[in-house]
Design a protein around this nucleic acid. Sequence first.
DNA 1: CAGCACTATCGAACCGGTTCGACAACGCTC
DNA 2: GAGCGTTGTCGAACCGGTTCGATAGTGCTG
Lengths: 343, 343
Amino acid sequence: MNIGEIARRAGVSRSTVSVALSGKRPVSEETRRKIQRVIDELGYRPNASARALANGRTNTIGLVFPPAGNHYTGMQLDFIGSVVEAAAAHDYDVLLSPSGVDSDRSFQRMLGERRVDGAILMEIRLEDDRVDHLAALGFPSVAIGRTAHPEGTWWVGLDHTALAAACVHHLADLGHRRVAFVNRPEQLLRAGYESAHRGLDGFTKAAAERGLTVRTYCCGDDAASGQACLEQILLDDPATTALVTLNEAALGGLYRGLAQAGRHVPRDFSVTGVVAGRWAETVTPQLTAADVPAEEMGRHAVDLLVERIDQPDAPPRHHLLAPPISLRASTGPGTGTPSTETR
Amino acid sequence: MNIGEIARRAGVSRSTVSVALSGKRPVSEETRRKIQRVIDELGYRPNASARALANGRTNTIGLVFPPAGNHYTGMQLDFIGSVVEAAAAHDYDVLLSPSGVDSDRSFQRMLGERRVDGAILMEIRLEDDRVDHLAALGFPSVAIGRTAHPEGTWWVGLDHTALAAACVHHLADLGHRRVAFVNRPEQLLRAGYESAHRGLDGFTKAAAERGLTVRTYCCGDDAASGQACLEQILLDDPATTALVTLNEAALGGLYRGLAQAGRHVPRDFSVTGVVAGRWAETVTPQLTAADVPAEEMGRHAVDLLVERIDQPDAPPRHHLLAPPISLRASTGPGTGTPSTETR
DNA sequence: CAGCACTATCGAACCGGTTCGACAACGCTC
DNA sequence: GAGCGTTGTCGAACCGGTTCGATAGTGCTG
């Protein structure tokens, strides 16, 4: 069923059907009803490809997300879900693009072949050629995270510097003096991932400010790595009494490592960090953490992107979020002399 | 840049450019090189909408996934990731469609407006009108899960009946006599979700076969519900020594509930169930479970769907997976008289 | 009732590709 | 050297919409 068939059955021209549907020109009430009746009868829906071809809009946004190689975290899942919902509210679909090994290929598909009207980029790096590339093209896009030079670009970000610092201050206030930092995997840090860098930065500066003794670690995105990382921490400095982590996927492993070393949380050891709230609540004791507002970030990103698509010349906008630390049950007073009994 | 511009600069007709690109007719080597040079120079890529309109194929598959309302589980995340990768390997994009409150709306968008060549349906119900609808339309689709009458349809499923039964046998072999079953939320069970029903079925039958005393529970998809559910289990029958769960999101809460009731896992209480392997390893002790092969399911689903798109008249195919139980650390001998000390 | 404005509709052109029949140029056979 | 098949290219039609200038019909004004 195409628009010509509808027109024939309603006894009008194709353009009249088009106009009746779009409302861009006046159509008599009688004609409109006649057309509507035929449409309802046949269950007609205009072909998206044809429409996209004619008016240069696909009504689809691209979501460029990290390859499955790095494991997904709960935060990313929540984010994807909220993007899809927010997009639906604006009448947009979401096309997924793995920015994997040959990120160029899928990038070319989405942009070069004009499959999408705009794109949301996840897992931003401080120096990100994708952002630069899109900026040069003037292609509507919103980055999740901010590059080293975010001026003139559109983005929604988490203030990892401030959040990591807040974690440090929280621990310092509790009396902890020897604190470890558990970052994302080394390869991501080396690749320049924004959250890993700014988080490390915020941690290091705040720790220096408070005169803490610190060690920083990179840790794979899985439980086994978390456990190994924790063993290393206690090996390097058994007097460590707390840690801050950005690594959601390693959290379960960190907890396991602590349990096996006989350190009770929070009595002997405090744990905090930056983690999506829903996932902070799955561990026992529940994690005191800066809750990543994935849902809010998704909504903001879509809102900004749609705004930018609608008005290509609007001045750049952004949102920098810094949620407060949610006090749960994984941090407590630091004694300076942790009990070291093994079970 | 469109195909006409390329043709003009290469001094040939539009059809020659098209043919040179598709290779569907012979083109002289010289002409081909001339065209290729111009294309490389200008970075031309054919417009996806125009191509889709012309040959009736969008090269996109739709992934109909559950609304954000039900919390996402790690398994779903892994699944989505693998679908995207497998699709990319077949040169397909993936369009996400929330099958939310007004599932019809997004369904209509994807199918009615021909945005996709085929669809993968998640969260199947025993009686699923979406599956029936698509079958009636003859629209290529693959269901993740099988309906009550899967004959004649394409699907990839997990044998929840067998898996739940395997969990029961594992526990019975260890000597457990009083076992609880923790299912997905009640609203999902009532709505007829396949995994919830078949899992419950397999559990109940196997338990009867082994003469176990059982109670079954529905539990919300979050840690707090898991904790509450566990309290209820011990309240209803303090002599319970083991549980089987399908509810990945509640797992952390179940563990917390056990810890707070002073039941040590696996010494006093055994836990097992059907959970994605990666997530079974995040809890301590690591969960002995039938590992949901989300990655494999995603690959299979895409392979089947692409096959069906390419040959619309092929006979229905399916994959029923029943991974073995991975022995980890959360189950142990059932004493019949559990210790009930509180800490 | 001529002139005008306004409303409703039509037809043609266009978006950017693909497909296919027509045809020219060429080499081969008999 | 007439007849034939092959190869390479072109032009027109088509996919299913949207847009816009042209035009017919209507009611109002002076």
